[in-house]
Amino acid sequence: MMNGVQKKIAIVPCSGIGKPYGTVSRVASYMVTEDYRSEFTKLVPLALLVMGDEGYGRIIAESPAITIDGCPQACATKMVLQCGGTVLRECSVLGTNRNHRDLKPQGIAELNEDGEKLASELAQEIIAVIDACGQPSKGGDHA
């Protein structure tokens, strides 16, 4: 807590454009930061972070991050750690897909229905992590 206001959690997706998994990571990150937990999260673009953007560098230095990697290279996690950040949870599209083997994501520019469903499952995992940190509780009525 800082000045009575909880810090936002940084959401750092993979920026890959070679496979549908990169797109799944991005779509999941938008679901979390725009649709479900916008007030408690901040989307951090990987390229800008790595290239030394001051503002995003400060966010990563001060806030815990949830990384979403699209492949085993785990660029998002590596880059956050390299930039001095703290990884609260490493999420992996492949890991989520292993738990939902029926979903076959396709499409890079635009995901198919399975891709969207997989992104939604991943977003729910991330939301559970955020909620476990107590972020959604706006508080005020407790002692």
Binding site: S15, I17, L46, A47, V50, M51, C75, A76, M79
Partner: peptide
């Protein structure tokens, strides 16, 4: 070909 920027930056 496309080059994956994050992988590139991460040391690919």
């Amino acid at each position: 070909v496309t080059i994956c920027l994050p992988l590139f930056l991460a040391g690919g």
